[in-house]
Design a protein around this nucleic acid. Structure first.
Lengths: 336, 336
DNA sequence: GAATTTCTTGAAACTAGTTACATTATAAAG
DNA sequence: CTTTATAATGTAACTAGTTTCAAGAAATTC
């Protein structure tokens, strides 16, 4: 079983020789069968089958100058936050004849630049990056190679790359406005890691501005359910008298909700909880989570279409703002 | 801004001409700089920089016969179920110098075969498939092209492809044994769609066998939190007197837990809930979820290593069984 | 000072396809 | 029975790199 792969794989010339036709004819059988006489075609097709010939993608690419490959630089797939976006990206891209290479960066600029180089090495024709804040190495690379690149998860018309996403600051504002309108006075803000994460940073800015003096502390934690659980423990130690917790991401909110429940803190009676993202599960928590909906799928879809069009027709897409909107459910309540 | 991409991108020959050296020298500067005189190298490097030369991945691939691309056929990324596996796959693959193309199949054999063809068209050297049950078209394709392929999410030593995964049936058995040991008599089983999903099917088989006459109904629902919520509603209508709910997937269990809480059914006092997967969030539900741990990350990692080695050194990996184990937390309790 | 070794470099032949152009044969039109 | 059109196929030149082999120059050894 080990040594049966000895003979190298056949190429176009091998097929041509065996079928006693020219390479051009074989190529025609592959690409425009109608041009080839039915008898000849059948003979060639038999030989192809017989030899197990598979045409080299690289050789095709070299002629067309096209690889039909796009790359996505994503912080991580190991979280609901990006996986749905990547999913819809991939689905949309297929319709445009592209394949998607995913590369995770862990929000590390160095890793990101390295992976970007790798993407270019394998020949991607376009790149998706996440957020606006990237290392100089990446910018230099993108500039040098002029690869079409769109930035997702963040809308900023002034950015030097087309951005397709939502306004993270505005999303935080929406949530804050809701809390204030409900009469909240002491809001704890829980957010994921700030290091290298401009999306979170923008949300924190939005929260700071929107809450003004109604804040009672910023809590940084991991971007996970566990992170939310831990944050609640800290909040209860430091500012037990706060009346609302604003989570800058749904996954954190899930943990917060669970831990509050465990501690016997009633949501929304004793504590309001609000968040940003609106993951599918947000509708089914207890109580259902009030959150700012971010159109993650739509973003994946639009970004895919934009980059595909850019690569295909050389038209740089305009930045696209996807509106976020507040979804009021049961985790927030008016204070008396 | 539109018309500046008129001139085509420079190639090796252009660089050679401008730098007044041969193509071989330019190639050497790129691949083995030490062989080139420092002065010449500097000159060539300047020209490369100046012209913005980027070497064609396709042309390189054609010579090496390598694309360093692998493809993964995954039901969906839009769920925690596969995203962590894909994430660890990608991370591991990078260390071996491969890039990963993801292709989602929605558990549709036709879509899967189509995407497999697309993967081969772009030149992947190896493929990951999910589960064991695939369409004839896919098998034919894999057989014809002899691409190294490993099947994940399912261990079966007898399968014609190397499998790397856990024993889904045994995982269900583990959970059942626990329920029975706790004295449960009436267990409702909630599972995701069976159509084209051999993993779920195996778990259902395991549950049927393990539970024997202790079952009180099989409930099929969507593989989501919402699916779990809906299932509870149906269970309460049809078999309100059951004393345990066995969810064949954590995401369903999350919904089940939430809906039971909303209905005031105490877990584990009135109802035990057990599940399979052990997603990170399972530790932080209320109560913490008793579940069978599936080593999803480890699977991604091992699968990546196996396929990388197969492609690289032509050694077909042996099937690999990853043990699942019961994690007893707070959602199950002994019946009196 | 001659012989040998090492360092650089280039010409040309590869890799595996696609495609423009030429050629031949057959069929239809005049 | 030519002339013209059409279909089918082949030749060879592309695509963009890598690599082998040989040659020339410089450095080292005898």
């Amino acid at each position: 079983m080990l040594g049966n792969a000895k003979k190298k794989k056949p190429n176009l010339r091998d097929v041509a020789r065996t079928a006693e036709v020219s390479v051009a004819t074989v190529s025609r059988v592959l690409n425009s069968p109608d041009m080839v006489n039915a008898t000849t075609r059948a003979r060639v097709e038999n030989v192809i089958e017989e030899l197990g010939f598979v045409r080299s993608a690289a050789a095709r690419a070299i002629n067309s100058g096209r690889t039909r490959l796009l790359g996505a630089l994503i912080p991580t797939l190991d979280s609901d936050i990006f996986s749905s976006t990547v999913n819809s990206m991939e689905q949309t891209l297929v319709d445009h004849g592209f394949s998607l290479i995913v590369a995770t960066t862990d929000d590390d600029p160095e890793k990101e630049a390295r992976k970007a180089q790798e993407l270019l090495d394998v020949g991607v024709e376009g790149i998706f990056v996440t957020g606006l804040d990237h290392g100089d190495a990446l910018y230099a690379l993108l500039h040098r190679t002029r690869v079409p690149t769109v930035a997702i998860s963040f809308y900023d018309a002034a950015y030097h790359l087309p951005t397709i996403g939502y306004d993270n600051r505005a999303a935080a504002d929406l949530a804050c406005a809701h809390l204030i309108e409900l009469g909240h006075k002491r809001v704890a803000v829980v957010h994921g890691p700030l290091a290298g994460n401009d999306r979170t940073l923008a949300r924190v800015d939005g929260a700071r501005a929107g809450l003004a003096d109604k804040t009672c502390g910023l809590y940084e934690t991991e971007l996970s359910v566990e992170g939310g659980v831990n944050a609640v423990r800290r909040i209860m130690r430091h500012t037990p008298r706060c009346d609302a917790i604003f989570c800058l991401s749904d996954v954190i909110a899930f943990g917060v909700l669970n831990e509050l429940l465990r501690l016997g803190v009633s949501v929304p009676n004793d504590m309001s909880v609000i968040s940003i993202h609106d993951l599918p599960a947000a509708e089914y928590t207890v109580p259902p989570l009030t959150t700012v909906h971010l159109p993650a799928r739509q973003m994946g879809c639009k970004a895919a279409e934009s980059l595909a069009a850019w690569v295909e027709h050389d038209v740089r897409p305009p930045p696209l703002h996807l509106a976020s909107r507040l979804i009021v459910r049961g985790s927030t309540r008016r204070r008396s």
